[in-house]
Design a protein around this nucleic acid. Structure first.
Lengths: 224, 224
DNA sequence: GCACTTCTTAAGCGTTTCTTAATTGCCTCG
DNA sequence: CGAGGCAATTAAGAAACGCTTAAGAAGTGC
């Protein structure tokens, strides 16, 4: 998102009556900027960052299709929705293949347009949910751990596995044998765990991994 | 992309006549897998990786909307297109807000469906916007790299491809096999990558490409 | 066809990471 | 408070992995 609150939306529509109408319709949910021809659309689209664009098909100076193609060729990946009266399938194919992400025909339903725009601007946090550990965030894929202040520390494979195992179930106390069988070779001595706990405490901070005397290790606090 | 050639497509459609028909329609452009109820769709959608999904609205066992919501709640971000007979605006809003990315009503135009699927699977990462890598800028043609001080170094084809692949997703760690399958012949030994990384480091600067021991290589930071 | 560049393979060497083990320090219970 | 057990720390050998080099193969242009 470009702004902290509402997504920014660039509306390119030449119809003097319809343009302001759509802008007003979208105003509660987006920061709307209205331009009325293709050349202005290209300029504003290239020089400013937008979260989504709504582009009319038939535009003066520069056609909507040409505008989209120009934006895409310049590396602009912003989601684009075409809004137009031309509704037959061939036109839709041309518009979508020019680089648009969705195609809505006039007359359109305001609710549907809004829903389609939501679908375009929606982002999924599909990223392998980073495990949070106190002030730290573990990224298993990247084998590193980031503090909340940008500071990043890289971990070795075993360090990462041990930390991930502990962090997977916060507050649970793991015995050395449990941790061993999870990610280390069966032949390993339980003392291996002690060594890696030490490495981790040195890399991160002492307080993160708690020792439960006579039992094992734990992240977070169980009792008290 | 999941496969090197065609994108993979999961089709969830219970109509015994329509399902195979759509599958055949899409077959030239996608690796299609057809399942006929929501529960199977959920299972296959969660356990295998797909480039795009086409889901019928009315499904036995588990409704299409419920299926999409379940997939999204599990962190599946794959583009989803709803294909259904229910066409009024309210239904579209419900479907899109459940997490679908596009909504097509039956009867549909084959060309439009294909174009909308292309729009969903299209990525703009391939756009030759000059990739910036630290103090360097990779030329779109990928055959040379310029430092911020005018200094230019020419790269061989493979060097450029490898660097571009890494730079396309900064901070992501690529395994040797991923990099191999991207731009080298499948028969190549993973050691090829090591050699090219070495070449690049000598031409540019050592710090640009980071080694993640036991995993692969990365551009961007995660160091300290 | 020849010279040159680029690509690929492979092997030795150096570094990082993993594991073991011994020493030192600390906690708990009698 | 002291003994015994448990944990923390350190160091060093072993193993895995990556870096570097060099040389032959394949490709390209003249």
């Amino acid at each position: 998102m470009t702004t902290a609150d509402r997504p920014s939306l660039l509306l390119v529509e030449d119809d003097a009556a319809l343009g302001p109408l759509i802008a007003e319709l979208l105003y509660p949910d987006y920061h709307v900027r209205l331009v009325t021809n293709g050349r202005d659309g290209l300029h504003v689209g290239l020089t400013e960052a937008w979260d989504v664009m709504v582009i009319d098909r038939g535009l003066p100076v520069m056609d909507g299709i040409a505008l989209i193609a120009a934006l895409r060729s310049k590396g602009i990946g912003t989601p684009i929705l075409i809004l137009t009266a031309l509704g037959d399938a061939e036109e839709k194919v041309r518009g979508l293949d020019a680089g648009a992400n969705d195609y809505v025909t006039k007359p359109f339903d305001a609710g549907e347009l809004a829903a389609r725009l939501r679908a375009l601007t929606r982002t999924y946090a599909a990223v392998p949910a980073p495990l949070s550990i106190g002030d730290w965030e573990l990224d298993p894929a990247q084998r590193s751990i980031r503090s909340v202040y940008g500071h990043t520390v890289s971990l070795t494979a075993k360090e990462g596995q041990l930390l991930a195992a502990l962090a997977a179930e916060p507050d649970r106390v793991f015995t050395r044998d449990e941790l061993l069988s999870a990610h280390f070779h069966a032949s390993d001595q339980p003392g291996v765990i002690d060594t890696y706990v030490h490495h981790l405490r040195r890399k991160i901070s002492k307080a993160v991994i708690r020792t439960v005397h006579g039992v094992g290790y734990q992240i977070g606090d169980a009792h008290e």
